[in-house]
C-alpha cells in the first residue's frame, strides 16, 4: 500500500460541526472519545480548527441559518477531506423533514461519504461508520 494512503487511513483527524442539532449526537461523539470506546485508538483526534482536520462530522438537521456557514466551514478544510453525516437529522432531516426552516440533511449542502443513522446513534455505530469511511479511503 502506498505510504501517503497508509498515513491517511491511520490518522484521520476529526472536526465536529453541529448544524442545528439537539446535542444528542454530540454527546454520543463525546462518549466515543471517552475511556469506554476511545476512538483515539485508531489515531482519531478531535481538532478545534477546520484547517487541521481531515474528516468532518456533521450532526443535526441543516437549518436555513446554518446552511451558508456549513458550506464555508467545509471549504476551509484542506483536501483530501471526507464527511460523515451523523444521526437521522443529518442523514435526511429526521423528524424535522418538510419543516419550513430546514434543508433536509447534510447532503443537500455538502458531499457526504458515510451516513450513520440513529437518534442518536450509539458510539458503536459511530465507530462502525468511521471504519466504513476508512475502508472507503483505502479503496479509493
Amino acid at each position: 500500500m502506498n505510504l501517503v494512503k497508509w498515513s491517511r487511513i491511520k490518522s484521520p483527524w476529526v472536526f465536529h460541526f453541529n448544524a442545528g442539532g439537539c446535542n444528542g449526537c454530540d454527546i454520543e461523539i463525546l462518549a466515543s472519545l471517552m475511556p469506554r470506546y476511545d476512538i483515539e485508538r485508531f489515531g482519531m483526534i478531535l481538532r478545534g480548527s477546520p484547517r487541521h482536520a481531515d474528516v468532518m462530522l456533521v450532526t443535526g438537521t441543516v437549518t436555513r441559518q446554518i446552511y451558508p456557514r456549513l458550506r464555508r466551514i467545509y471549504d476551509q478544510i484542506p483536501d483530501p477531506k471526507f464527511t460523515l453525516a451523523l444521526g437521522s437529522c443529518a442523514c435526511s432531516g429526521g423528524v424535522f423533514q418538510q419543516c419550513y426552516n430546514v434543508h433536509e440533511g447534510a447532503d443537500k449542502a455538502i458531499p457526504v461519504d458515510v451516513y450513520v443513522p440513529g437518534c442518536p446513534p450509539r458510539p458503536q455505530a459511530i465507530i462502525d461508520g468511521a471504519v466504513k469511511l476508512l475502508q472507503k479511503i483505502s479503496k479509493s
Binding site: S7, R8, K10, G43, D54, P78, D79, P80
Partner: peptide, 11 residues
Amino acid sequence: VADLIKLLAKE
C-alpha cells in the same frame, strides 16, 4: 509518523 506524513501530503 503517520500524522506527520499525512499532514505533509495534505493541501
